[in-house]
Design a protein around this nucleic acid. Structure first.
Lengths: 345, 345
DNA sequence: TAGAGCCTGGACAACGTTGTCAGATGCGGG
DNA sequence: CCCGCATCTGACAACGTTGTCCAGGCTCTA
């Protein structure tokens, strides 16, 4: 009796297995497998008996075992910086939709912009044998991924390119977008334009800085050191940087903000100071149109980034595509007012 | 020769297994396992040989097989409505952090507010044998989860309670928050107050409506039909609803918005009309403090919801907790201006 | 030096599924 | 009545790992 009880208890609580279903239905193990997977070659009567047994026992196939046998997990991993950042929510959702369309589940992880944590996450995902990876890299050396990619893990980088390996990557045109944004300010008469951005070791930050420099250079403006603030990322430091630029003896008359978080803080600072200062931000932000003035931004399409990357990933998995490619999506300048303010006299 | 080659190729590309490592290091299979898992009982010299073989072959343990053997997957599932919604980003991130602290990975899925899709997702996660589930329910009948929970899948519902089953749930105090918000408007002299919210079949929407009704009743105000708009969710319909309320012969002088998306649209409508209308919204929104007037909101702490739920989940997994509990987190009224506008004469 | 006890290493089964293959069954025709 | 064929079914191995258990070699003590 205790014997019987023990036999039905396994490590997953006491989930029935195909064996249990087979026993109850009075059929062989493989027949249950056939029914569960809708394979042909089962008489309606047998199928009914099996279905009843499944129902009665509450059987649910163990995909872990299935995965082990089949070799494909039907899951992909997404490693991004911070799921709480409004930029990554839509990106993640877009990846998920594509995965869903391919019958795959999405495992999500945040690297918190820490290269070590990125690697740890990626390798954990590889150990799970995800079929593919979409990575928004935090680090700049991804050689640790080479064995995995050789072993068949499809990999696409998004938002920033991979470091020191050759891999697919989907990017926004950070350089072009920043250049356009800064040129927009210049076209409205500004010459002393500040730039506040993230650490230049982050590819997008470096590219946007390059766009800023290029636009300035093209206009024949020499950039002064005090106009640029790099590597500031937390609101408090962004605030200080903005205030310094705006309070200098010859203050900047316009600011280009390198990403959504910077933009938000700069908007705050400007609002507090009362004096109008022109502003163009990289990344669109919600409600930007309702502020007075509306915030002019260089918008990138996060969902499109995610979708494009995921589609590319599944194309890798479906067979083709040996040559890694770099796909660049355009940005869009959205004028709403803040970028069209003329320089203070 | 072909024989040898074939032997090293398995279904995962050609990943080495512990067997391969063992062969190369000239030790037994189990010894490799011991090294990989840091188990005691291996001489330093043997360990070194094994490590070298692992390095040379690029071996990475197959967690699928491990999971099958051990019964725990060290992964939990999170089913929410839409990862792109700024409310769920921080929630998801909070769950992820807790999972990470417990060495677990997070599998994410969006139900798109579709009960069928929710069930499909949940069952897919159960088939993967996730150790636990955090669910923001879309449907109102979760009896399909009973066998899973009996089988030992830890389950916590968030934001809305489970339907027709007894399960842990972590909520914000929607009723109290809405009542406070509406009472705030009443305290500022309003009597004709509109309510725009989601479908009442969604628990939070129903509770917020109840809070609205209660506050009105407590103030002795009889609510007119035209003041309430339920089940509108897409921006276009919210817009129409708001405009109707504000253009009626005896228009409402204040609006209570039932969630973040409604609030945003109502802010737009009010801004376009020029006439000041009082507004209190449920859920905080970014930049709400920078609008003129600032948007007064009833804020809930999405991260706290996620964290609390995840911690509860792992406490379930760690053994204790048989009695399902309902945990309600308080909301916070943040006054910023829009809720303090007096009624138009 | 023999025996006890400890430490290291390896053979083997098991986890729950799927693929292979061969056996059983039923049916029609010669 | 038996043979051949098609259809359905089940036994068995394999996926890559971990848990159990035992063998062999070593040290230490009497």
């Amino acid at each position: 009796m205790a014997e019987t009880a023990r036999r039905t208890v396994n490590r997953y609580g006491n989930r029935p297995t195909m064996k249990d279903v087979a026993a109850r239905a009075g059929v062989g193990l493989k027949t249950v497998s056939r029914v569960v997977n809708g394979e042909p070659g089962v008489t309606p009567d047998t199928e009914r008996r099996v279905q009843e047994a499944i129902e009665a026992l509450g059987f649910r196939r163990n995909d872990s075992a299935r995965v082990l046998r089949k070799g494909r997990t039907a899951s992909i991993g997404l490693v991004l910086e911070d799921l709480a950042d409004p930029f990554y929510g839509p990106l993640s959702r877009a990846v998920e939709e594509v995965a869903r369309a391919h019958g795959a589940l999405l495992i999500n992880g945040s690297s918190a912009e820490d290269p070590e944590r990125e690697q740890e996450l990626v390798l954990a995902l590889c150990a799970r044998r995800v079929d593919g990876l979409v990575v928004i890299p935090a680090g700049d050396d991804h050689r640790y991924l080479e064995p995995e990619m050789r072993a068949g893990v499809a990999t696409v980088f998004v938002d920033r390119p991979a470091g020191r390996i050759d891999a697919d990557v989907v990017l926004s045109d950070s350089f072009g977008g920043a250049r356009d944004g800064v040129a927009h300010l210049i076209a409205h008469g500004h010459r002393r334009i500040g730039f506040i951005g993230d650490m230049p070791r982050i590819h997008t930050a470096a590219e946007r800085l390059r766009g800023y420099r290029t636009a300035m250079e093209e206009a024949g403006i020499e950039v002064e050191d005090g106009w640029m603030s790099l590597g500031v990322t937390d609101p408090e430091r962004v605030r200080r940087a903005a205030e310094e630029m705006l309070s200098a003896p010859t203050p900047v008359t316009a600011v280009f903000a390198g990403n959504n978080r910077v933009t938000v803080t700069v908007v705050r600072v400007i609002a507090e100071r009362g004096r109008p200062v022109a502003l163009v931000g990289f990344d669109d932000i919600e409600l930007a149109d309702l502020l007075r003035p509306g915030v002019t931004v260089v918008a990138q399409d996060a969902a499109a980034l995610g979708r494009t990357a995921a589609e590319r990933l599944f194309r890798q998995l479906d067979g083709g595509l040996i040559v890694p490619e770099r796909i660049e999506l355009p940005t869009r300048l959205i004028t709403r007012g803040s970028g069209e303010i003329p320089p203070a006299v």
